[in-house]
């Protein structure tokens, strides 16, 4: 199952909590954030769980794809 989340504009650590919750339900989770701090936190968390992470940036927004 895949999940897509729009986490733009949410304050810390809500993007991280939502990404983590989504990963308990889906194998592939795509999230969009617009700040470097949640981007770093989500990538770090995914790596700590040995998930595969891809991040692309465009226009101040970051799209992170996490695969379990």
């Amino acid at each position: 199952m895949e999940k897509k989340l729009d986490l733009r504009g949410l304050s810390c650590p809500i993007p991280l909590i939502k990404a983590r919750d989504a990963l308990t339900e889906a194998a592939v989770v795509t999230v969009v954030v617009d700040e470097p701090t949640p981007r770093e936190n989500i990538i770090k968390f995914a790596k700590s769980q040995n998930y595969r992470v891809d991040c692309t940036a465009s226009g101040g927004e970051y799209t992170i794809v996490i695969r379990k």
Partner: peptide, 11 residues
């Protein structure tokens, strides 16, 4: 955030 991230995800 330091304590929060540790409690939440052990960061």
């Amino acid at each position: 955030g330091g304590i929060r991230d540790f409690l939440l995800v052990r960061d």
